[in-house]
Simulated scan of single mutants.
Amino acid sequence: MNRILKGLSIALLLVACTTTKNIVDRPITFNEERKILTLEYLQNRYDLDQETPKIDPKMIVLHWTVIPTFEESFEAFDPATLPNWRSDIKDVSGLNVSSQFMVDRDGTIYQLLPETTMARHVIGLNHCAIGVENVGGTDDLPLTKAQLKSNIWLVRYLKEKYNIDYLIGHYEYTLFENHPLWLEKDDEYRTKKTDPGVDFMQKVRKAVDDLNFKPLPEKISN
């Protein structure tokens, strides 16, 4: 009996920890300039003429920042316009990259933007994707167990809140090139991604298998 009660106590503790996890508000700058740039991005990249930069979330995309600290990662996303160090994408739009969420190395989840406000984090799919950035991701600073747990919790939280169909790693985004959700007009605008790593994605997917996300589209060979 004591063993059963102990098991129940542990189970209840785990449930409590899961359901009371905090999301810390740490908004990046979303001024009039960023709003205009976001609306221009939606129009120019996707042919979406909108009065507000609102999205209908259908997808969660997991990333890594390849920047060692939260503060440095936040500072990279905070300005409305792209800094000079992103010369690979600045000619497409002056809108800075960002995401709706960022997970620090200790597992703290920060919300940078409202979940239904467009962030620039994945080519072709920003109009329907919630981005989750993870601080780190280099060989010296691999993603942590705390980040893994927080990503699993956040995916569950978002799936319960929105009618989300897909969970992907950033490196999988080109699988959607012939999918109805794909809206990027420029066939040449692609960047090669590896984040957040195959192993990390496999672990997250295994932990949320019960959520029944749709399978990813198969790659079409040329």
Rank of each mutant, 00 (worst) to 15 (best):
residue 6 K to M: 09
residue 6 K to Y: 09
residue 6 K to V: 04
residue 8 L to I: 15
residue 9 S to P: 02
residue 11 A to P: 02
residue 12 L to S: 04
residue 15 V to M: 10
residue 18 T to L: 12
residue 20 T to K: 06
residue 20 T to P: 08
residue 22 N to L: 15
residue 26 R to L: 04
residue 28 I to V: 15
residue 30 F to A: 14
residue 31 N to F: 15
residue 34 R to G: 08
residue 35 K to Q: 15
residue 38 T to A: 15
residue 39 L to D: 09
residue 41 Y to G: 06
residue 42 L to N: 08
residue 48 L to S: 07
residue 50 Q to Y: 14
residue 55 I to Y: 02
residue 55 I to C: 01
residue 57 P to E: 05
residue 60 I to Y: 04
residue 62 L to M: 15
residue 74 F to L: 03
residue 74 F to M: 05
residue 75 E to P: 01
residue 76 A to I: 02
residue 77 F to D: 01
residue 78 D to W: 05
residue 81 T to N: 04
residue 81 T to W: 04
residue 81 T to Q: 11
residue 83 P to S: 06
residue 86 R to K: 12
residue 87 S to W: 12
residue 87 S to H: 09
residue 90 K to I: 09
residue 91 D to Y: 08
residue 93 S to W: 13
residue 96 N to A: 07
residue 97 V to N: 10
residue 101 F to G: 01
residue 102 M to V: 11
residue 105 R to C: 08
residue 108 T to C: 11
residue 109 I to V: 15
residue 110 Y to R: 03
residue 116 T to W: 03
residue 116 T to K: 09
residue 120 R to Y: 12
residue 120 R to D: 07
residue 121 H to I: 07
residue 129 A to V: 05
residue 130 I to Y: 04
residue 134 N to W: 06
residue 135 V to H: 02
residue 136 G to D: 00
residue 136 G to Q: 03
residue 136 G to K: 01
residue 137 G to I: 01
residue 138 T to E: 05
residue 140 D to L: 13
residue 143 L to I: 07
residue 145 K to C: 05
residue 148 L to H: 11
residue 151 N to T: 08
residue 155 V to N: 00
residue 156 R to F: 02
residue 157 Y to T: 03
residue 161 K to I: 04
residue 163 N to Q: 12
residue 164 I to K: 01
residue 165 D to V: 00
residue 165 D to T: 06
residue 168 I to M: 11
residue 169 G to R: 10
residue 169 G to N: 10
residue 170 H to F: 12
residue 171 Y to V: 05
residue 172 E to G: 07
residue 173 Y to M: 06
residue 174 T to G: 00
residue 176 F to N: 00
residue 178 N to Q: 15
residue 178 N to M: 06
residue 179 H to R: 05
residue 181 L to S: 02
residue 182 W to A: 02
residue 183 L to P: 00
residue 184 E to K: 08
residue 185 K to D: 03
residue 187 D to Q: 15
residue 189 Y to G: 01
residue 191 T to A: 12
residue 194 T to A: 13
residue 195 D to K: 10
residue 197 G to D: 08
residue 198 V to I: 14
residue 198 V to E: 14
residue 198 V to Q: 13
residue 202 Q to I: 04
residue 203 K to Y: 05
residue 205 R to S: 12
residue 209 D to C: 07
residue 213 F to Q: 04
residue 215 P to A: 05
residue 217 P to M: 07
residue 218 E to Y: 08
